[in-house]
């Protein structure tokens, strides 16, 4: 019910924005002809606004469609999309004045088979951190299956499975098993809000980071390298796992860094526009976990 009400409000706002010429294009969700999850859609005429929809299948992260756009845009932003927009603003990828953010309170999205989308179950941010207009939900009802998911510690075990408590051998096996599935199609990179480099490190020839073969070490290089690039920048939208055609579950690596970053530096990506990202700053008292002659509590 709540979705329908939000949808009506959203359509009203979008119609106004387009009719008054405040924006040139609305980036939102519309139905997929195949009856699966909603797909991104770009609305330019007020008459087409009725195509927009808002329900529990609006899984795609739309933020990536905003960068490198010269038009004025309005974007339907779930909390994760909004967090990505905050990061884009901090990283100078968008001009805030050209982006109108229609924030949607979000109870979490579902995949076409009805299961919670990756990242949605353990998500703790239900209201977008920035918006120009907020479309509230009556009551944010998250998945029944995950009554416990409001508690971060519990939910963490569900997919990160506190992997640091595992034996080293099991951790390596888990990682390598996932790598075995990867076909290096780079969909995770394309779908990730944070991977917008003009030339990705894997596409460089000099130095050639990634030999174009399918060796497991190549896959490790790619996934570890990408995880490192997202350290402290991940907005936990789960797109990487959602789009993977081979079902590689690699989000736990980045999540571990996200949690570490929060624990050590008190930083969560995309929550506050005025905060400097953890990896772009330092403090004199930073701990040296695992350094030789430093804090030894980890090695």
């Amino acid at each position: 019910m709540s979705f329908k009400k939000q949808e009506n409000q959203m359509i009203e706002v979008c119609t106004r924005l387009l009719t008054e010429g405040e924006v040139d294009v609305v980036i939102g969700f519309s139905s997929d002809q195949l009856g699966g999850c909603a797909i991104p859609s770009f609305i330019r005429k007020p008459l087409d606004v009725k195509d927009l929809k808002w329900d529990d299948t609006c899984t795609p992260n739309l933020a990536k469609y905003v960068i490198e756009r010269k038009e004025k845009v309005a974007i339907i932003a779930k909390p994760c999309d909004a967090r990505a927009l905050v990061m884009y603003q901090i990283e100078n990828q968008i001009d805030r004045n050209h982006v109108y953010i229609i924030g949607m309170e979000c109870p979490g999205m579902k995949l076409s088979d009805g299961t919670p989308a990756p990242g949605c179950q353990e998500c703790t941010v239900r209201t977008p951190p920035i918006f120009d207009i907020l479309i509230e939900a009556d009551k944010i009802q998250t998945f029944e299956v995950s009554e416990l998911s409001s508690n971060r510690e519990n939910s963490k075990t569900s997919f990160v499975e506190s992997s640091m408590e595992w034996e080293l051998e099991d951790r390596l096996k888990r990682f390598q098993d996932e790598m075995q599935k990867c076909i290096l199609c780079f969909s995770c990179r394309q779908a990730c809000y944070g991977c917008y480099c003009k030339t990705c490190f894997i596409e460089r020839d000099v130095p050639n980071w990634l030999p174009q073969d399918l060796d497991i070490s190549t896959k490790m290089m790619f996934h570890l390298g990408r995880a490192m690039h997202l350290a402290g920048r991940c907005v936990e939208c789960g797109a990487c796992e959602r789009v993977c055609p081979s079902g590689v579950k690699i989000r736990y690596l980045i999540q571990e860094l996200t949690d570490l970053c929060h624990e050590q530096y008190g930083y969560r990506a995309g929550m506050d526009m005025n905060e400097t990202p953890a990896m772009a700053t330092f403090s004199l008292g930073d701990r040296e976990i695992g350094f030789l002659g430093g804090d030894q509590n980890e090695s």
Binding site: E169, R171, R174, M220, A231, G232, L260, F282
Partner: peptide
């Protein structure tokens, strides 16, 4: 220093 703390944890998570 911050980067190395992250990297160290990342490698440990991956079982290295």
């Amino acid at each position: 220093r911050r980067r190395f703390v992250m990297l160290k944890r990342l490698l440990a998570t991956a079982g290295i």
